[in-house]
Design a protein around this nucleic acid. Sequence first.
DNA 1: CCGAGGATTATCT
DNA 2: GATAATCCTCGGA
Length: 199
Amino acid sequence: MPEPLPRSFYDQSALTVARALLGAILVRAEPGQPRLSGIIVETEAYTGLDDLASHGRHKPTPRNKPMWGPPGHAYVYLSRGMHWMLNVVTEAEGAPAAILIRAIRPVEGVELMAERRPGRTPRELTSGPARMTRALNVTQALNTVDMTTHEAGLWIEPGQPVLEEQVRTGPRVGLGKTPEPWFSIGWRWWVAGDEYVSR
DNA sequence: CCGAGGATTATCT
DNA sequence: GATAATCCTCGGA
């Protein structure tokens, strides 16, 4: 069984990590359940410094504090009062930055994912940040856990590298009234033509 | 197929 | 009190 990506992987620029995560395998292992996994096909980078779209744009608060924490840990928060979002913290401790994992292509445990997403087509199982967390049972309970070990049942393994010619970038999704240039900057990465990419 | 609007609640101003 | 790194349903074509 491959080892989780190490802390040094996440201790890089958020932009570098967001690109490098394409093709990696997100793994969810819960006691008494079959292992769930999928290939990461869509990511978004949020840096704190001057990024007016990022939760790390201001001071640390109870919610966004994990973004300042050590790289390789999870940052999970509730969006719109009902959807859990999964991020991986990047860059050195003290620098607020994280990657939002927006979509995966299911590999292992598709049956269980389907059970958790009743009435959905296969494509709808994990083709969006909240769809994915629902299929993988990622909730608040996983906020701040270390994703560089097997301990918490959530980690990322190396996968098949995605070639540069298959990578696309574009504006991040759902930013509302975020001002330019942050609204349109190409900090969303996805695999060209993959049906599991959101929208 | 497509766009509009509602759901639902923690979080921050 | 307003907002939110979203998803789903429904109505119209």
